[in-house]
Design a protein around this nucleic acid. Structure first.
Lengths: 215, 215
DNA sequence: CCTGTAGGCGTACGACGTATACCTACGAGG
DNA sequence: CCTCGTAGGTATACGTCGTACGCCTACAGG
Protein backbone atom coordinates (compact mmCIF):
# COMPACT_ATOMS: atom_id res chain seq x y z
CA UNK A 1 0.00 0.00 0.00
CA UNK A 2 1.76 3.06 -1.15
CA UNK A 3 1.08 6.46 0.24
CA UNK A 4 2.79 9.00 -2.03
CA UNK A 5 0.48 11.94 -2.06
CA UNK A 6 1.28 14.28 -4.92
CA UNK A 7 1.00 17.96 -5.52
CA UNK A 8 -2.08 19.50 -3.86
CA UNK A 9 -4.91 21.14 -5.72
CA UNK A 10 -4.33 24.79 -6.42
CA UNK A 11 -7.88 25.80 -7.28
CA UNK A 12 -11.16 25.76 -5.40
CA UNK A 13 -14.56 25.60 -7.07
CA UNK A 14 -15.21 29.10 -5.77
CA UNK A 15 -12.07 30.44 -7.38
CA UNK A 16 -13.03 28.83 -10.67
CA UNK A 17 -16.57 30.17 -10.52
CA UNK A 18 -15.42 33.68 -9.80
CA UNK A 19 -12.88 33.62 -12.63
CA UNK A 20 -15.63 32.48 -14.98
CA UNK A 21 -17.90 35.23 -13.70
CA UNK A 22 -15.18 37.79 -14.34
CA UNK A 23 -15.00 36.62 -17.94
CA UNK A 24 -18.79 36.64 -18.36
CA UNK A 25 -19.17 40.09 -16.85
CA UNK A 26 -16.44 41.44 -19.09
CA UNK A 27 -17.15 39.67 -22.40
CA UNK A 28 -20.69 38.39 -22.09
CA UNK A 29 -21.93 34.85 -22.49
CA UNK A 30 -20.37 34.64 -25.96
CA UNK A 31 -16.94 35.19 -24.44
CA UNK A 32 -17.50 32.48 -21.85
CA UNK A 33 -15.14 29.85 -23.13
CA UNK A 34 -13.05 27.10 -21.58
CA UNK A 35 -9.95 28.79 -22.94
CA UNK A 36 -10.98 32.24 -21.72
CA UNK A 37 -11.66 31.01 -18.20
CA UNK A 38 -8.40 29.08 -18.16
CA UNK A 39 -6.52 32.18 -19.27
CA UNK A 40 -8.25 34.17 -16.54
CA UNK A 41 -6.87 31.58 -14.13
CA UNK A 42 -3.42 31.81 -15.73
CA UNK A 43 -3.59 28.22 -16.84
CA UNK A 44 -3.68 26.27 -20.04
CA UNK A 45 -7.10 25.34 -21.33
CA UNK A 46 -6.66 21.67 -20.52
CA UNK A 47 -5.67 22.28 -16.93
CA UNK A 48 -9.23 23.31 -16.25
CA UNK A 49 -10.30 19.75 -16.97
CA UNK A 50 -8.54 18.60 -13.81
CA UNK A 51 -11.27 20.44 -11.91
CA UNK A 52 -14.27 20.18 -14.15
CA UNK A 53 -15.66 17.37 -16.27
CA UNK A 54 -16.84 19.52 -19.13
CA UNK A 55 -18.32 22.87 -20.05
CA UNK A 56 -21.64 21.97 -18.51
CA UNK A 57 -20.07 21.52 -15.13
CA UNK A 58 -18.33 24.86 -15.43
CA UNK A 59 -21.67 26.50 -16.17
CA UNK A 60 -23.09 24.72 -13.17
CA UNK A 61 -20.35 26.14 -10.97
CA UNK A 62 -21.06 29.64 -12.24
CA UNK A 63 -24.79 29.47 -11.58
CA UNK A 64 -24.16 27.85 -8.23
CA UNK A 65 -21.70 30.59 -7.33
CA UNK A 66 -24.24 33.27 -8.07
CA UNK A 67 -27.26 31.65 -6.48
CA UNK A 68 -25.42 30.55 -3.37
CA UNK A 69 -25.06 34.19 -2.43
CA UNK A 70 -28.82 34.47 -1.91
CA UNK A 71 -29.84 35.19 1.65
CA UNK A 72 -32.33 32.44 2.45
CA UNK A 73 -33.24 33.44 5.98
CA UNK A 74 -36.96 33.96 6.45
CA UNK A 75 -37.77 37.69 6.42
CA UNK A 76 -39.23 39.53 9.40
CA UNK A 77 -42.25 37.47 10.55
CA UNK A 78 -44.09 40.65 11.49
CA UNK A 79 -44.61 41.38 7.80
CA UNK A 80 -47.61 40.00 5.91
CA UNK A 81 -46.75 36.76 4.15
CA UNK A 82 -47.16 38.34 0.71
CA UNK A 83 -44.56 40.96 1.53
CA UNK A 84 -42.22 38.26 2.70
CA UNK A 85 -42.68 36.29 -0.51
CA UNK A 86 -41.95 39.49 -2.41
CA UNK A 87 -38.73 39.85 -0.47
CA UNK A 88 -37.65 36.27 -1.16
CA UNK A 89 -38.41 36.53 -4.86
CA UNK A 90 -36.65 39.87 -4.97
CA UNK A 91 -33.52 38.36 -3.48
CA UNK A 92 -33.29 35.75 -6.21
CA UNK A 93 -33.92 38.36 -8.87
CA UNK A 94 -31.23 40.61 -7.39
CA UNK A 95 -28.69 37.80 -7.31
CA UNK A 96 -29.15 37.16 -11.02
CA UNK A 97 -29.38 40.85 -11.88
CA UNK A 98 -25.86 41.28 -10.50
CA UNK A 99 -24.68 39.22 -13.49
CA UNK A 100 -27.44 39.60 -16.06
CA UNK A 101 -25.60 37.70 -18.79
CA UNK A 102 -26.13 34.40 -16.97
CA UNK A 103 -29.92 34.76 -17.15
CA UNK A 104 -30.29 32.00 -19.70
CA UNK A 105 -28.08 29.61 -17.72
CA UNK A 106 -30.11 29.88 -14.54
CA UNK A 107 -33.15 27.84 -15.56
CA UNK A 108 -30.87 25.06 -16.79
CA UNK A 109 -28.66 24.71 -13.72
CA UNK A 110 -30.66 26.10 -10.85
CA UNK A 111 -31.32 22.67 -9.28
CA UNK A 112 -27.71 22.19 -8.34
CA UNK A 113 -27.54 25.06 -5.91
CA UNK A 114 -28.04 24.26 -2.25
CA UNK A 115 -29.14 27.84 -1.71
CA UNK A 116 -32.03 27.28 -4.09
CA UNK A 117 -33.15 24.35 -1.97
CA UNK A 118 -33.13 26.53 1.13
CA UNK A 119 -34.82 29.36 -0.76
CA UNK A 120 -37.55 27.01 -1.93
CA UNK A 121 -38.06 25.64 1.56
CA UNK A 122 -38.50 29.14 2.93
CA UNK A 123 -40.93 30.16 0.22
CA UNK A 124 -42.93 26.98 0.71
CA UNK A 125 -43.20 27.86 4.40
CA UNK A 126 -44.62 31.24 3.48
CA UNK A 127 -47.09 29.74 1.03
CA UNK A 128 -48.20 27.32 3.73
CA UNK A 129 -48.71 30.24 6.03
CA UNK A 130 -50.92 31.76 3.33
CA UNK A 131 -53.16 28.74 3.66
CA UNK A 132 -51.92 26.73 0.72
CA UNK A 133 -51.26 22.99 0.85
CA UNK A 134 -51.16 20.01 -1.46
CA UNK A 135 -51.49 20.58 -5.16
CA UNK A 136 -52.43 24.24 -4.78
CA UNK A 137 -49.13 24.85 -3.02
CA UNK A 138 -47.17 23.08 -5.74
CA UNK A 139 -48.88 25.09 -8.44
CA UNK A 140 -48.25 28.33 -6.56
CA UNK A 141 -44.56 27.61 -6.15
CA UNK A 142 -44.08 26.57 -9.72
CA UNK A 143 -46.05 29.57 -10.94
CA UNK A 144 -43.92 31.90 -8.89
CA UNK A 145 -40.80 30.31 -10.32
CA UNK A 146 -42.10 30.51 -13.88
CA UNK A 147 -42.87 34.17 -13.49
CA UNK A 148 -39.55 34.88 -11.83
CA UNK A 149 -37.43 33.13 -14.42
CA UNK A 150 -39.45 34.42 -17.35
CA UNK A 151 -39.30 37.98 -16.08
CA UNK A 152 -35.56 37.82 -15.47
CA UNK A 153 -35.02 36.63 -18.99
CA UNK A 154 -37.31 39.16 -20.63
CA UNK A 155 -35.70 41.91 -18.64
CA UNK A 156 -32.24 40.88 -19.76
CA UNK A 157 -33.31 40.46 -23.40
CA UNK A 158 -34.68 43.98 -23.55
CA UNK A 159 -36.25 46.14 -20.89
CA UNK A 160 -39.73 47.54 -21.41
CA UNK A 161 -38.26 51.02 -21.73
CA UNK A 162 -35.80 49.88 -24.41
CA UNK A 163 -35.57 50.23 -28.17
CA UNK A 164 -37.72 47.18 -28.90
CA UNK A 165 -40.69 48.88 -27.33
CA UNK A 166 -39.90 52.09 -29.17
CA UNK A 167 -40.09 50.25 -32.47
CA UNK A 168 -43.51 48.92 -31.56
CA UNK A 169 -44.73 52.38 -30.65
CA UNK A 170 -44.04 53.59 -34.17
CA UNK A 171 -44.36 50.53 -36.36
CA UNK A 172 -47.92 49.78 -35.36
CA UNK A 173 -50.17 52.57 -36.59
CA UNK A 174 -53.87 51.86 -37.15
CA UNK A 175 -53.56 48.09 -37.52
CA UNK A 176 -52.57 47.68 -33.87
CA UNK A 177 -54.19 50.46 -31.86
CA UNK A 178 -53.85 48.80 -28.45
CA UNK A 179 -50.28 47.79 -29.12
CA UNK A 180 -49.20 51.24 -30.19
CA UNK A 181 -50.84 52.86 -27.19
CA UNK A 182 -49.43 50.28 -24.81
CA UNK A 183 -45.93 50.62 -26.21
CA UNK A 184 -46.00 54.35 -25.63
CA UNK A 185 -47.08 53.89 -22.05
CA UNK A 186 -44.53 51.15 -21.51
CA UNK A 187 -41.60 53.45 -22.13
CA UNK A 188 -42.10 55.11 -18.77
CA UNK A 189 -42.16 52.00 -16.60
CA UNK A 190 -39.01 51.06 -14.72
CA UNK A 191 -37.86 47.43 -14.62
CA UNK A 192 -38.52 47.30 -10.89
CA UNK A 193 -42.03 48.66 -11.22
CA UNK A 194 -42.73 46.20 -13.99
CA UNK A 195 -41.41 43.24 -12.03
CA UNK A 196 -43.05 44.12 -8.73
CA UNK A 197 -46.33 44.95 -10.42
CA UNK A 198 -46.55 41.59 -12.15
CA UNK A 199 -45.56 39.76 -9.00
CA UNK A 200 -48.19 41.62 -7.02
CA UNK A 201 -50.84 40.46 -9.47
CA UNK A 202 -49.80 36.88 -8.96
CA UNK A 203 -49.74 37.23 -5.20
CA UNK A 204 -53.17 38.82 -5.17
CA UNK A 205 -54.41 35.77 -7.02
CA UNK A 206 -52.86 33.60 -4.35
CA UNK A 207 -54.42 35.56 -1.54
CA UNK A 208 -58.02 35.09 -2.55
CA UNK A 209 -59.22 31.56 -1.97
CA UNK A 210 -61.17 30.17 -4.91
CA UNK A 211 -64.83 30.93 -4.41
CA UNK A 212 -67.79 31.85 -6.57
CA UNK A 213 -67.72 35.51 -7.53
CA UNK A 214 -70.49 37.54 -5.91
CA UNK A 215 -73.16 39.05 -8.09
CA UNK B 1 -29.64 50.00 -68.55
CA UNK B 2 -29.24 46.28 -68.63
CA UNK B 3 -32.01 43.91 -67.82
CA UNK B 4 -30.55 40.37 -67.63
CA UNK B 5 -32.40 38.74 -64.80
CA UNK B 6 -30.64 35.58 -63.66
CA UNK B 7 -31.73 32.32 -62.20
CA UNK B 8 -34.75 32.62 -59.88
CA UNK B 9 -34.66 31.80 -56.21
CA UNK B 10 -35.37 28.18 -55.51
CA UNK B 11 -36.16 28.46 -51.79
CA UNK B 12 -38.79 30.31 -49.81
CA UNK B 13 -38.37 31.36 -46.17
CA UNK B 14 -41.13 28.89 -45.29
CA UNK B 15 -39.32 26.05 -46.97
CA UNK B 16 -36.13 26.93 -45.09
CA UNK B 17 -37.91 27.24 -41.78
CA UNK B 18 -39.61 23.90 -42.17
CA UNK B 19 -36.36 22.17 -43.12
CA UNK B 20 -34.74 23.63 -40.03
CA UNK B 21 -37.66 22.47 -37.91
CA UNK B 22 -37.32 18.97 -39.31
CA UNK B 23 -33.70 18.96 -38.19
CA UNK B 24 -34.53 20.34 -34.75
CA UNK B 25 -37.36 17.90 -34.18
CA UNK B 26 -35.13 15.00 -35.19
CA UNK B 27 -31.79 15.94 -33.60
CA UNK B 28 -32.64 18.58 -31.03
CA UNK B 29 -31.22 22.06 -30.70
CA UNK B 30 -27.68 20.67 -30.57
CA UNK B 31 -28.12 19.22 -34.04
CA UNK B 32 -29.43 22.51 -35.41
CA UNK B 33 -26.51 23.50 -37.57
CA UNK B 34 -26.08 25.50 -40.75
CA UNK B 35 -24.65 22.41 -42.41
CA UNK B 36 -27.40 20.14 -41.15
CA UNK B 37 -30.15 22.43 -42.41
CA UNK B 38 -28.38 22.82 -45.75
CA UNK B 39 -28.11 19.05 -46.07
CA UNK B 40 -31.80 18.75 -45.26
CA UNK B 41 -32.41 21.11 -48.18
CA UNK B 42 -30.05 19.07 -50.38
CA UNK B 43 -27.69 22.01 -50.66
CA UNK B 44 -24.19 22.88 -49.72
CA UNK B 45 -23.73 24.74 -46.46
CA UNK B 46 -22.77 27.96 -48.15
CA UNK B 47 -25.79 27.99 -50.44
CA UNK B 48 -27.91 28.70 -47.39
CA UNK B 49 -26.17 32.03 -47.04
CA UNK B 50 -27.82 33.24 -50.24
CA UNK B 51 -31.08 33.22 -48.28
CA UNK B 52 -29.98 34.04 -44.77
CA UNK B 53 -27.45 36.51 -43.37
CA UNK B 54 -26.25 34.31 -40.53
CA UNK B 55 -27.30 31.73 -38.01
CA UNK B 56 -29.29 34.30 -36.05
CA UNK B 57 -31.52 34.96 -39.00
CA UNK B 58 -32.09 31.26 -39.50
CA UNK B 59 -33.16 30.96 -35.87
CA UNK B 60 -35.45 33.89 -36.43
CA UNK B 61 -37.06 32.15 -39.39
CA UNK B 62 -37.63 29.03 -37.31
CA UNK B 63 -39.30 30.87 -34.45
CA UNK B 64 -41.31 32.93 -36.89
CA UNK B 65 -42.42 29.80 -38.69
CA UNK B 66 -43.67 28.26 -35.47
CA UNK B 67 -45.34 31.33 -34.01
CA UNK B 68 -46.98 32.39 -37.25
CA UNK B 69 -49.15 29.32 -37.02
CA UNK B 70 -50.89 30.73 -33.95
CA UNK B 71 -54.55 31.44 -34.44
CA UNK B 72 -54.91 35.07 -33.38
CA UNK B 73 -58.64 35.51 -33.92
CA UNK B 74 -60.42 36.70 -30.78
CA UNK B 75 -62.17 33.76 -29.10
CA UNK B 76 -65.92 33.53 -28.67
CA UNK B 77 -67.01 36.88 -27.14
CA UNK B 78 -69.68 35.09 -25.13
CA UNK B 79 -67.00 33.69 -22.87
CA UNK B 80 -65.77 35.62 -19.83
CA UNK B 81 -62.65 37.62 -20.66
CA UNK B 82 -60.48 35.50 -18.35
CA UNK B 83 -61.43 32.37 -20.25
CA UNK B 84 -60.59 34.09 -23.49
CA UNK B 85 -57.18 35.14 -22.19
CA UNK B 86 -56.63 31.54 -21.13
CA UNK B 87 -57.44 30.43 -24.66
CA UNK B 88 -55.06 32.94 -26.22
CA UNK B 89 -52.23 32.02 -23.87
CA UNK B 90 -52.93 28.37 -24.44
CA UNK B 91 -52.60 28.80 -28.20
CA UNK B 92 -49.14 30.27 -27.87
CA UNK B 93 -48.12 27.53 -25.48
CA UNK B 94 -49.45 24.87 -27.83
CA UNK B 95 -47.57 26.32 -30.77
CA UNK B 96 -44.28 26.07 -28.92
CA UNK B 97 -45.13 22.71 -27.38
CA UNK B 98 -45.38 21.28 -30.89
CA UNK B 99 -41.60 21.80 -31.13
CA UNK B 100 -40.41 21.89 -27.53
CA UNK B 101 -36.72 22.07 -28.40
CA UNK B 102 -37.10 25.64 -29.62
CA UNK B 103 -38.28 26.83 -26.20
CA UNK B 104 -35.07 28.69 -25.47
CA UNK B 105 -35.11 30.42 -28.87
CA UNK B 106 -38.58 31.86 -28.46
CA UNK B 107 -37.83 34.61 -25.95
CA UNK B 108 -34.94 35.79 -28.09
CA UNK B 109 -36.71 36.02 -31.43
CA UNK B 110 -40.39 36.38 -30.60
CA UNK B 111 -40.54 40.06 -31.64
CA UNK B 112 -40.01 39.30 -35.29
CA UNK B 113 -43.22 37.34 -35.76
CA UNK B 114 -46.19 39.23 -37.19
CA UNK B 115 -48.46 36.70 -35.53
CA UNK B 116 -47.09 37.73 -32.15
CA UNK B 117 -48.08 41.30 -32.89
CA UNK B 118 -51.61 40.21 -33.69
CA UNK B 119 -51.67 37.93 -30.66
CA UNK B 120 -50.58 40.78 -28.43
CA UNK B 121 -53.16 43.11 -29.90
CA UNK B 122 -55.90 40.61 -29.21
CA UNK B 123 -54.75 39.99 -25.65
CA UNK B 124 -54.51 43.71 -25.00
CA UNK B 125 -58.12 44.03 -26.15
CA UNK B 126 -59.16 41.39 -23.64
CA UNK B 127 -57.23 43.08 -20.86
CA UNK B 128 -58.89 46.35 -21.72
CA UNK B 129 -62.22 44.62 -21.53
CA UNK B 130 -61.23 43.48 -18.07
CA UNK B 131 -60.98 47.11 -17.07
CA UNK B 132 -57.24 47.58 -17.38
CA UNK B 133 -55.65 50.61 -18.98
CA UNK B 134 -52.41 52.56 -18.86
CA UNK B 135 -49.57 51.22 -16.80
CA UNK B 136 -51.68 48.51 -15.20
CA UNK B 137 -52.42 47.09 -18.61
CA UNK B 138 -48.74 47.13 -19.56
CA UNK B 139 -47.79 45.35 -16.38
CA UNK B 140 -50.52 42.78 -16.87
CA UNK B 141 -49.42 41.98 -20.42
CA UNK B 142 -45.78 41.76 -19.52
CA UNK B 143 -46.57 39.61 -16.49
CA UNK B 144 -48.59 37.25 -18.59
CA UNK B 145 -45.74 36.98 -21.06
CA UNK B 146 -43.18 36.39 -18.32
CA UNK B 147 -45.25 33.61 -16.85
CA UNK B 148 -45.93 32.07 -20.24
CA UNK B 149 -42.31 32.06 -21.40
CA UNK B 150 -40.97 30.97 -18.03
CA UNK B 151 -43.46 28.14 -17.78
CA UNK B 152 -42.74 26.92 -21.29
CA UNK B 153 -39.06 26.81 -20.53
CA UNK B 154 -39.40 25.08 -17.16
CA UNK B 155 -41.72 22.55 -18.69
CA UNK B 156 -39.26 21.74 -21.43
CA UNK B 157 -36.31 21.58 -19.03
CA UNK B 158 -38.04 19.04 -16.85
CA UNK B 159 -41.69 18.48 -16.09
CA UNK B 160 -42.92 18.55 -12.53
CA UNK B 161 -43.61 14.84 -12.72
CA UNK B 162 -40.08 14.12 -13.93
CA UNK B 163 -36.94 12.72 -12.36
CA UNK B 164 -35.74 16.06 -11.01
CA UNK B 165 -38.72 16.20 -8.72
CA UNK B 166 -38.20 12.59 -7.74
CA UNK B 167 -34.69 13.40 -6.60
CA UNK B 168 -36.01 16.19 -4.41
CA UNK B 169 -38.58 13.92 -2.89
CA UNK B 170 -35.83 11.65 -1.58
CA UNK B 171 -32.82 13.87 -1.17
CA UNK B 172 -34.52 16.23 1.24
CA UNK B 173 -35.22 14.41 4.47
CA UNK B 174 -35.65 16.39 7.69
CA UNK B 175 -33.72 19.44 6.60
CA UNK B 176 -36.34 20.36 4.01
CA UNK B 177 -39.72 19.13 5.26
CA UNK B 178 -41.87 21.34 3.03
CA UNK B 179 -39.75 20.59 -0.01
CA UNK B 180 -39.91 16.84 0.47
CA UNK B 181 -43.65 16.90 0.97
CA UNK B 182 -44.20 19.22 -1.97
CA UNK B 183 -42.04 17.11 -4.26
CA UNK B 184 -44.08 14.03 -3.45
CA UNK B 185 -47.30 15.85 -4.24
CA UNK B 186 -45.84 17.33 -7.40
CA UNK B 187 -45.31 13.96 -9.01
CA UNK B 188 -49.03 13.62 -9.62
CA UNK B 189 -49.64 16.92 -11.38
CA UNK B 190 -49.87 16.97 -15.16
CA UNK B 191 -48.11 19.69 -17.14
CA UNK B 192 -51.46 21.06 -18.27
CA UNK B 193 -52.84 21.24 -14.74
CA UNK B 194 -49.69 22.93 -13.57
CA UNK B 195 -49.74 25.50 -16.35
CA UNK B 196 -53.45 26.27 -16.19
CA UNK B 197 -53.37 26.44 -12.41
CA UNK B 198 -50.58 29.00 -12.35
CA UNK B 199 -52.22 31.03 -15.07
CA UNK B 200 -55.50 31.01 -13.20
CA UNK B 201 -53.78 32.44 -10.15
CA UNK B 202 -52.41 35.27 -12.22
CA UNK B 203 -55.78 35.95 -13.84
CA UNK B 204 -57.53 35.97 -10.49
CA UNK B 205 -55.10 38.66 -9.42
CA UNK B 206 -56.02 40.62 -12.51
CA UNK B 207 -59.71 40.28 -11.90
CA UNK B 208 -59.77 41.86 -8.47
CA UNK B 209 -59.22 45.58 -8.62
CA UNK B 210 -56.74 46.78 -6.02
CA UNK B 211 -58.65 47.72 -2.88
CA UNK B 212 -58.11 47.51 0.85
CA UNK B 213 -58.71 44.01 2.17
CA UNK B 214 -61.80 43.72 4.37
CA UNK B 215 -61.30 42.87 7.99
C1' DC C 1 -27.04 33.79 -79.74
C1' DC C 2 -24.83 36.73 -76.09
C1' DT C 3 -24.65 38.90 -71.51
C1' DG C 4 -24.80 39.99 -66.78
C1' DT C 5 -26.71 38.87 -62.50
C1' DA C 6 -27.28 36.00 -58.85
C1' DG C 7 -27.55 30.94 -57.34
C1' DG C 8 -24.78 27.45 -55.84
C1' DC C 9 -20.40 25.15 -54.38
C1' DG C 10 -15.42 24.10 -52.78
C1' DT C 11 -12.09 25.44 -49.98
C1' DA C 12 -10.21 27.37 -46.12
C1' DC C 13 -9.67 29.93 -41.67
C1' DG C 14 -10.13 30.77 -36.91
C1' DA C 15 -12.44 29.38 -32.63
C1' DC C 16 -14.63 26.11 -30.10
C1' DG C 17 -14.88 21.70 -26.84
C1' DT C 18 -12.04 18.13 -25.58
C1' DA C 19 -9.11 13.30 -26.10
C1' DT C 20 -4.50 11.87 -25.62
C1' DA C 21 0.06 11.64 -24.21
C1' DC C 22 3.66 13.67 -22.03
C1' DC C 23 6.42 16.10 -18.45
C1' DT C 24 6.91 17.50 -13.63
C1' DA C 25 6.09 19.18 -8.80
C1' DC C 26 5.51 17.38 -4.62
C1' DG C 27 4.38 14.67 -0.06
C1' DA C 28 5.30 10.43 2.12
C1' DG C 29 8.39 6.34 3.20
C1' DG C 30 12.90 4.85 3.38
C1' DC D 1 18.60 13.07 1.92
C1' DC D 2 16.71 10.28 -1.94
C1' DT D 3 13.24 7.72 -4.19
C1' DC D 4 8.67 6.88 -5.92
C1' DG D 5 4.04 7.23 -7.49
C1' DT D 6 0.18 10.17 -7.87
C1' DA D 7 -1.99 13.80 -9.73
C1' DG D 8 -1.33 18.80 -11.51
C1' DG D 9 -0.27 21.08 -15.60
C1' DT D 10 0.87 21.50 -20.66
C1' DA D 11 1.34 20.81 -25.76
C1' DT D 12 -0.61 19.05 -29.51
C1' DA D 13 -4.15 17.63 -32.32
C1' DC D 14 -8.85 16.23 -34.02
C1' DG D 15 -13.47 17.02 -35.36
C1' DT D 16 -17.09 20.49 -35.72
C1' DC D 17 -18.82 24.85 -35.80
C1' DG D 18 -19.94 29.57 -38.26
C1' DT D 19 -18.71 31.84 -42.21
C1' DA D 20 -15.39 34.81 -45.71
C1' DC D 21 -13.82 34.36 -50.27
C1' DG D 22 -13.63 33.20 -55.06
C1' DC D 23 -15.01 30.42 -58.71
C1' DC D 24 -18.27 28.24 -61.92
C1' DT D 25 -22.79 28.19 -64.05
C1' DA D 26 -27.89 28.40 -64.88
C1' DC D 27 -30.93 31.31 -66.70
C1' DA D 28 -34.12 35.52 -68.20
C1' DG D 29 -33.63 39.37 -70.96
C1' DG D 30 -31.79 41.69 -75.33
Amino acid sequence: MSSAMPRPRSLTPDRIASAALTVIDRDGLAGFTMRAVATELSMSAMALYRYVDDRGELERLVVEGVLDRIDTDPPDPELPWADRVTIMVGRMRAAVAAHPAIASLVPVHRHRSRAVLRWTETVLGLLTEAGLTGQRRVVALRGLLSYLLGAIQLEHLGPLAGPGTAVLAELAPEAFPYLADTARTARHISPDAEFDGGLALFLRGLADPPRPRPG
